[in-house]
Amino acid sequence: MIGGGANCMIEIQRQIVIDLAKELHKLGMSLPPTVIFQFDNCGENKNKEMFAFMSLLIENHTFDYIECNFLIVGHTHTSIDQYFGVLSTAIREEKFIGSPIALWHLLDTAHGQENRRPLINRPITVVYDYKKAFEPYLNKLMYYQVPHCFCFRRLVGKAIMKYKLFSSHLSWLPVEPDIIAKSLKDIMASQCDKVKLNPFIIIDGQNNLLLELGLDPKSATAANIISNTSLSEQIMNVRDVTPCLLSIEANSIDQQEQR
């Protein structure tokens, strides 16, 4: 029996990559250079060890580019959850599941349609201690729980990770310095140790809220505010509610970190 958490998820990702490579090989194909991992925002998926594993996949040339996307907490319903619904119903309906083999068989035949049954279904009995293995190599990075997109690519033989708060953002952060990196030292010089957090980060900045309210931040100059009473009233309202909105944001980030 094994423990859950990051170790378990990393092992599963490793097994899946191996399984995928084997299945593609049967069809005369190979693994593509780019892969996109999609996860919910759970702590067992979004952790430094998982990022280290992604970096390892890049450094050992399994993939050239990896993108890791996370859905927003509380809104993580995905298509696979529908399949889980079928599985949990099948498990619930059984009065007694006597052994792991019985469970395996049940999961294999849970879906009524044969073409929707799993391609591979197997138990994991051994999990490596990735946490311990990766520990000496982990970089310090604060607030990595906040961004929703991460990318990994190779630079001078080393994997580098960048982040985006939301997929709609155009550029990946941190911005690379305008030099051609020739050594590990050059890469490490531009390393960042924490994700930049700005107020109203969950809605992509306060300007977004102001625009939604019909207030153009550029036109809200002192002269305009004084001359226009409705504008000044609206701005006063925004000012009054801002602490509450910021507390909602801080609470949600805090709860995310605790998870």
Partner: peptide, 24 residues
């Protein structure tokens, strides 16, 4: 803990891999 993985690699290859981990 049942972990499902839905893989897409072209229209030809869409698979579902289920891995079950028995955990405390």
């Amino acid at each position: 803990r049942i972990i499902g993985n839905y893989s897409i690699y072209s229209y030809l290859f869409v698979s579902l891999i289920i891995i079950v981990a028995y955990v405390h």
